[in-house]
Computed example of a mutant assay.
Amino acid sequence: MDDYPLLNLFWTMLWFFLWIMWLFLLFKVIVDIFRSDDLGGWAKAGWLILALVLPYLGVLVYVIARGKSMGKRDAKEAKEREAAFKAYVREAAAGDTAGAAKSGGSIDELAKLADLKERGALTEEEYQRAKTKLLV
């Protein structure tokens, strides 16, 4: 270890992290190739071969040629995931609300209690006591 200076260790780590970042970019490009709806089968095969046979050049050319649409596809997918999550939450809340309506509407009561607490009509202790009664 005495013959490996600290600066060499720094450069080795820098190149290692740059290599890892490039691998992440390569995988992102490959995933984007398969996810892209506007490319046909032969175009996908061509981009994939270019990215795998000449990886540095292939990834660089892909990012230059299709980087903007790559970002748009990422944003679209994120919006779709968020919409699906919100729909799931609404669905789950609707199921809970239906169950709460059967048990006397405890969700509505909790909302009323929280509103009273926010307006200062209830203290924290009173709010906790009333909440405990509703939930038991």
Rank of each mutant, 00 (worst) to 15 (best):
F34R: 10
F34T: 15
R35H: 10
R35T: 04
S36H: 10
S36L: 05
S36V: 15
S36K: 15
D37V: 01
D37A: 08
D37L: 03
L39F: 14
L39G: 02
L39I: 03
L39V: 01
L39Y: 02
G40Q: 07
G40I: 07
W42P: 00
W42Y: 09
W42H: 13
W42S: 06
A45S: 12
G46Q: 09
G46M: 14
W47R: 13
W47T: 11
I49N: 01
I49Q: 06
L50Y: 05
L50A: 14
A51P: 01
L52A: 01
L52M: 05
L52Q: 02
L52F: 04
V53R: 01
V53F: 09
V53P: 04
V53Q: 02
V53D: 05
V53T: 08
L54I: 07
L54R: 07
L54V: 05
L54C: 06
P55I: 03
P55R: 05
P55A: 02
P55T: 04
Y56R: 05
Y56C: 02
Y56M: 06
Y56D: 03
L57K: 12
L57M: 09
G58Q: 00
G58V: 01
V59C: 06
V59N: 03
V59P: 01
L60F: 11
V61E: 00
V61N: 04
Y62L: 07
Y62H: 07
Y62P: 00
Y62W: 14
V63G: 00
I64F: 09
I64T: 07
A65T: 15
A65M: 13
A65S: 10
R66N: 14
R66Y: 12
R66I: 04
R66L: 11
G67H: 13
G67T: 09
K68D: 09
K68N: 05
K68M: 05
K68F: 09
M70A: 08
G71Y: 07
K72V: 15
K72T: 10
R73M: 14
R73H: 10
R73V: 12
D74F: 13
A75D: 14
K76Q: 14
E77Y: 06
A78Q: 07
K79M: 13
K79D: 12
K79Q: 15
E80M: 08
E80Q: 08
E80D: 04
E80N: 05
R81M: 06
R81A: 05
R81V: 06
E82M: 03
E82S: 06
E82C: 02
A83G: 06
A83S: 03
A83E: 12
A84W: 02
F85K: 15
F85I: 09
F85D: 14
F85W: 14
F85T: 11
K86A: 09
K86C: 01
K86P: 00
